[in-house]
Design a protein around this nucleic acid. Structure first.
Length: 521
DNA sequence: AGCTGGCAAACA
DNA sequence: TGTTTG
DNA sequence: ACAGCT
């Protein structure tokens, strides 16, 4: 699910040490200022003419031309609505309430003052309708939305909601996997041998929220939070999507994917069909389902799918590594229904749970020892792994895994740096697997490093899947990756003995950050 | 009405 | 080639 | 079977 949310920018004051000299030395250009003359180059304006006299309207029109993307004649298309109307009842005669909730509704002075100051101004002092104060603040184009939501209180975000900075291998011994190692800004001295361009900028680059809009056709321009205001609807549609995917109806599933993605980026609670019917990728069928959800709180088709024996079985089957929709359907057609059925079918001997891993290599060429045909050695292993892999990994432990791996990598090749990506980077409190991107300033040293690390982890009993072979290793272009199964050492305070999926991605230094931001899933 | 929808690598 | 994965 | 495009 390739949907990312850009990191929310901290206020500069927040704990990050400014000792990192990094930002000034970054060779690539930071987006300095928008080289646009307009103050609100992306803002579309709608003017409610009621209560405004002719000259004022003319003045606002010309201001709008100078400062904004333009005026729109349909209020639905607008980002900001200017009005002198202050009473809800009267305002509703000009703009439907549902629509109004999705805009910033401000007085004409907002535009005048912005033009005078020559810069974007917060909407807060210009809220036109008190009933829509929250919505207006949330939709104010001048603010980085999220900070604006808590303008009164001090903005304390839970630290764990933020991506951690990369860990460099330059502090090898000092950090003996101490428990909570939240990013510690001050005591860690900048690595002398890691060029600044490979370290995360501090403070983080601000996000240009004005370039993001939930109406964009491109998913990468539609920011969305981890859980959205319409989460239940999204989950309901997701069931249909999964159902379609399991049945091999890829086209349909793709449509649901896009629709869900659009809904996830819609920043308000949906209360009427009208709010969303113009959003991209929502057509007649899915709008109908949305409407049904609005009316009844559920979607019959999704309920039907979710409670069907077939869906349940296909879901469990395909949760096994190596079993996809097609095989799942085949197994179902064979009459299998449960995990136990699978274990029998694939001939898993539960008596000797440990032996599977060790002896695997020798069995490799004798596919016929499974009870019923299919000598799927893979699936046998995956079945044994399934229980562990179904357990989510807390952020603390993800960070610990990175520490441990970095310690080994550092011993192998000093001067590496890494960033944890995947779900962790998107702020998920728990991950299904761990993805880490590595690099080293010396292009030559990156070559073959992936294999070397995997071998070392294997020798150290940290990674033990499939003999010397990780699930797969591969490299395309200048990326190398290994998909492995990892166990923390017993000495770690986070040791559980549970096996965890760990993906290692090695990138050439010049594509390191592309690998970091491009690693979705 | 009819076509398109992401992709590359790995395995059997 | 078809299936699965990230 | 879902939406967008031509």
């Amino acid at each position: 699910m390739p949907f990312k949310r850009p990191a929310i920018s901290h206020e500069t004051s927040s704990g990050c040490s400014s000792r990192h000299s990094s930002t000034s030395e970054v060779p690539s250009k930071r987006p300095k200022t928008n080289i646009s003359a307009k103050i609100y180059p992306h803002v579309k304006l709608y003017i409610v003419q009621a209560k405004l006299d002719g000259p004022t309207i003319a003045e606002l029109f010309s201001l709008a031309e100078r400062t904004c993307a333009g005026l729109v004649s349909d209020v639905e298309d607008a980002d900001v609505v200017l009005t002198s109307v202050t009473m809800r009842r009267r305002f509703e005669r000009h703009v439907p309430w549902d629509v109004a909730k999705t805009k910033a509704i401000v007085t004409p002075s907002w535009l005048r003052d912005s033009a005078e100051e020559g810069k974007p101004l917060p909407c807060e002092p210009y809220v036109a309708l008190q009933d829509l104060r929250d919505e207006t603040l949330a939709n104010c184009p001048a603010c980085d939305k999220y900070p604006c939501d808590c303008e009164d209180t001090d903005c304390e975000y839970p630290a764990q909601a933020y991506p951690s900075p990369p860990t460099s291998s330059t502090s090898p011994t000092e950090r003996i996997s101490s428990s909570s190692d939240t990013p510690n800004p001050d005591d860690d001295t900048p690595a002398p041998d890691i060029p600044a361009y490979l370290l995360a900028p501090s403070p983080p680059l601000p996000t240009d929220f004005m370039r993001l809009s939930h109406t964009s056709r491109y998913a990468c321009q539609r920011a969305h939070p981890l859980t959205c205001p319409n989460q239940k609807l999204a989950l309901e549609l997701d069931i249909i999507k999964k159902g379609r995917a399991l049945e091999g109806e890829d086209r349909s599933a793709l449509s649901y994917s896009r629709a869900i993605s659009v809904i996830k980026s819609y920043p308000h609670l949906i209360t009427s069909r009208r709010q969303v019917e113009k959003l991209p990728y929502l057509g007649t069928k899915i709008l109908g389902l949305v409407e049904e959800f609005l009316d009844t709180g559920r979607i019959a088709e999704a309920r039907g799918i979710a409670s069907s024996e077939r869906f349940e079985a296909l879901t469990i089957f395909s949760s096994v590594y190596g079993i996809g929709p097609s095989t799942a359907r085949r197994l179902f057609a064979l009459g299998l229904r449960t995990l136990e059925d699978l274990e029998v079918y694939y001939g898993v001997e539960k008596d000797e749970p440990e032996s599977q891993l060790v002896e695997l290599e020798h069995k490799e060429n004798f596919g016929s020892d499974a009870k019923v045909g299919l000598g799927e050695t893979w699936v046998k292993i995956a079945l044994g792994l399934r229980e562990d892999l179904a357990i989510k990994i807390p952020r603390d432990e993800v960070e610990e895994m990175n520490q441990v791996v970095m310690r080994e990598l550092n011993a192998l090749e000093p001067g590496c740096t890494s960033t944890i990506v995947g779900g962790y980077r998107r702020g998920k409190p728990e991950s299904n697997d761990v993805d880490i991107v590595f690099t080293h300033p010396d292009t030559q040293k990156v070559k073959g490093l992936c294999k070397r690390l995997v071998n070392r982890l294997y020798e150290r009993d940290l990674s033990n899947f499939h003999g010397h072979n990780p699930l797969r290793t591969t490299h395309w272009d200048s990326l190398e990756k290994a998909l492995t199964v990892f166990i923390l050492p017993q000495s770690s305070p986070f040791y559980t003995g549970r096996r965890r999926r760990l993906d290692l991605i090695f990138a050439q230094p010049e594509v390191y950050w592309c690998a970091v931001i491009g690693w979705w899933v």
